[in-house]
Amino acid sequence: MISRVSWCLFLAAALSHLTLAPAQAYLDPSMGSFIVQAIAGTLLAGGLILKRYWHWFKHKLLRPGGKGDQELDEQ
């Protein structure tokens, strides 16, 4: 089934802006960059899921018996 997992991940992304330990890397990132990712990531992930659903519906409605869920998930 398409994207049940994706939905869960999206909900998790939307609801779980909890804190983490600081990243252990040598780059010196800014908090602003992290916040943009949190906001943008949530919005864009939502868009990504909607896009996948749209493709799924389109194939189901227009091409019954067409590509299966598994194939769409792989796209």
């Binding site: 779980s16 602003g32 992290f34």
Partner: peptide, 20 residues
């Protein structure tokens, strides 16, 4: 004066990173 750098960074999930 932008984001408060003293706070711990927010979570960003894998799907969000893929979407970015």
């Amino acid at each position: 004066g932008g984001a408060d750098g003293r706070k711990a960074p927010p979570r960003v999930d894998k799907l969000a990173l893929t979407a970015i």
